[in-house]
Design a protein around this nucleic acid. Structure first.
Length: 175
DNA sequence: TAGGCCATCTGGTCCT
DNA sequence: AGGACCAGATGGCCTA
C-alpha cells in the first residue's frame, strides 16, 4: 500500500475553494484544448467542403457538438455525485485519521470489511442475548444466527474482526 | 522517471 | 428520442 499522508495533508491544506479553482482551471484547459482541436478539424473540413452541403454539414456538426457538450456536462455532474457519495462513505468509516484520505478502492474495500465485521458482531451479540433470556434459542434472532453460521462458518466472526483491524492498522501506518 | 490515482471526454448500450 | 450508465482512452498531478 502506498503512503498517502503527504498527499493527504496537502489536499486538506488546500481548502475547498482552492480545489474548486483547480477544477475550474482544469475545465478551462480542457475547453481550450477542445477549441484548438475544433479549429484544427474545422480548417480541415473547410478545405474539403463547399456550398450548401458545407452549410448543412456545419449546422449538423454544430448540433452534434452541442449535444456532445451537454452530455459531457451531465456526465461530469454524475461523476461529481458519485464522488460525493464516496466522500460520504469515507466519513462514516471509523478509526481512519481525517487527513488520511482513502482512495476509492481503499474506501470500498474497507467499507466492505467493516460491514462484514459489524454484521457478524451483531449476530453474535443477539444470539448470545436471546439464548440467555429464554434458554431455548428458538427466537428469530438465533434462527438468524444459525443461518449466518451455516452460510459463513463459526470462525468467520473473529476472521472479519481480524481482517478489518489489520486493514485499519495498515492504513494508519500509511503502508 | 515510472506508477498510481483521478477527472474528463467519448461512443456504445440500456432504460424510460 | 433523450437521458443515464458504463467502460476505455487520455492526460495531468503527485509521490517514491
Amino acid at each position: 500500500m502506498k503512503t498517502k499522508s503527504k498527499r493527504a495533508k496537502h489536499r486538506l491544506a488546500a481548502d475547498k475553494e482552492a480545489f474548486l479553482e483547480k477544477t475550474t482551471l482544469r475545465k478551462e484547459e480542457t475547453v481550450k484544448s477542445l477549441q484548438r482541436k475544433e479549429r484544427r478539424t474545422g480548417r480541415k473540413n473547410e478545405s474539403r467542403q463547399s456550398g450548401t452541403v458545407k452549410a448543412k454539414r456545419t449546422w449538423k456538426d454544430k448540433d452534434r457538438r452541442l449535444r456532445r457538450l451537454e452530455s459531457n456536462e451531465r456526465e461530469r455532474q454524475r461523476m461529481h455525485k458519485l464522488n460525493n457519495a464516496f466522500q460520504a462513505l469515507r466519513e462514516v468509516i471509523p478509526h481512519v485519521r481525517a487527513e488520511n484520505k482513502l482512495s476509492k478502492i481503499e474506501t470500498l474495500t474497507l467499507a466492505k470489511n467493516y460491514i462484514k465485521s459489524l454484521t457478524s458482531t451483531i449476530l453474535h451479540m443477539s444470539s448470545g442475548h436471546l439464548l440467555t433470556v429464554d434458554g431455548t434459542g428458538a427466537a428469530s434472532g438465533s434462527k438468524l444466527y444459525r443461518h449466518y453460521q451455516q452460510q459463513r462458518g463459526e470462525d468467520e466472526h473473529d476472521e472479519q474482526l481480524k481482517k478489518y483491524s489489520t486493514q485499519i492498522h495498515s492504513f494508519r501506518q500509511g503502508s
